[in-house]
């Protein structure tokens, strides 16, 4: 079997997708990054290899997410792409004709507007992380609720409580207040979903024309309460695709398929998982910028360096990277 590997290294989760020639997902893996992207990628590769039939051939690799450069270097990616583009690519292949993508991940949230199959506009949260996955996680654990039951509980609500949504700090103190007044947990959770959706639409979706079909993806899309709240606020159906939590990786795999057209992959093999990678940081004393340079080594050999402003270190190993 031939196929393409997509790797999305985000701040909270690292996802891998193996996509067949036909564009279908053969296997997907969702891991916690836990601050160690290299380990997460290696672990993901191991799990992926174990899950795929022995004769599987990887014809291309794409990486995305905030750790895309790192993942790209260690796996030998054919394409390294930002998460906006990969999410848009994945959604428009899974839901042809999609015009709005709502994406909420662990640390960031974004909205992507597509018209006629191309990205026309996008926005990411800038200075506030309210409404992202980590905030929901935190609130769920504060209420002692399993995050996976959050959605079903919220949907049991009959009268959602109004919670201030402009700021995560306000939201939390408002929630505690309402909880101490005696409101039922499902009503508080539903109110929280509504507040976060309001926050998202006001901050990230500000001034954007949201037209159907609307796709909701990212880790938070698993929360049926959030889907319900979006549908209430937008007055239209919101579609959550089956692989909503790995859409970035899926998009990267799709782009890898295109990047390796009539070209051999530079994938370094599944045994990347056993190799010894080491990251060391040092401060360059070349000038007063004192850049923190990061060096990735594989068994003593330097693979890449980055973090310097002037290119003194990074140029030595710069790989030819195709842009746009």
């Amino acid at each position: 079997m031939h196929g393409y590997l997509g790797i999305d290294v985000g701040s909270v989760s690292t996802n891998l997708v193996f996509m067949g020639e036909d564009g279908n997902v053969k296997h997907s893996i969702y891991l916690r990054t836990q601050g160690e992207p290299i380990k997460a990628v290696q672990q993901g590769l191991q799990l992926m290899q174990a899950a795929l039939p022995a004769k599987t051939k990887v014809a291309g690799v794409g990486t995305t997410g905030s750790g895309r450069q790192l993942a790209g270097v260690i796996t030998g990616a054919d394409i390294i792409k930002n998460e906006i583009t990969t999410h848009a690519v994945a959604a428009s292949n899974v839901v042809p004709g999609v015009r709005t993508i709502l994406e909420i991940g662990g640390q960031d949230s974004k909205i992507i507007i597509l018209r006629n199959g191309v990205v026309a506009d996008f926005a990411m949260n800038t200075v506030c992380a309210a409404g992202t996955g980590s905030f929901l996680d935190q609130q769920a654990s504060r209420l002692g609720i399993d995050i996976r039951k959050f959605g079903t509980l919220a949907l049991q609500s009959t009268a959602p409580v109004r919670i201030a949504g402009r700021c995560a700090v306000f939201a939390e103190s408002d929630m505690i207040h309402k909880q101490q007044m005696g409101y039922a947990v499902p009503d508080i959770l539903a109110g929280l979903c509504e507040a976060l959706v309001r926050n998202y639409l006001n901050n990230v979706g500000k001034g954007k024309e949201i037209l159907p079909p609307v796709v909701f993806q990212g880790g938070v899309a698993a929360n049926s309460g959030m889907k319900w709240a979006f549908e209430q606020a937008l007055g239209m159906e919101v579609y959550v695709p089956p692989y909503h939590d790995v859409m970035g990786a899926l998009g990267a795999a799709m782009l890898a398929r295109e990047a390796t057209n009539r070209k051999n992959t530079s994938f370094r093999g599944f045994d990347t998982a056993e190799r010894d990678f080491r990251c060391t940081g040092f401060t360059c004393n070349g000038c007063s910028n004192m850049c923190e340079v990061l060096e990735i080594q594989e068994s003593g050999r330097v693979l890449a360096r980055w973090g310097d402003r002037c290119g003194r270190w990074s140029n030595i190993t710069t790989r030819e990277e195709k842009i746009s």
Binding site: G23, T85, V89, G117, V119, F122, M254, I323
Partner: peptide
């Protein structure tokens, strides 16, 4: 910046020589 430049390039070249979102 990368995403913005992608968007501009795609608009400018009208989908030619750069990725269209529908690839499969």
């Amino acid at each position: 910046l990368e995403a913005f430049v992608d968007l501009l390039a795609r608009r400018k070249h009208n989908g030619r020589a750069v990725y269209r979102c529908t690839v499969i």
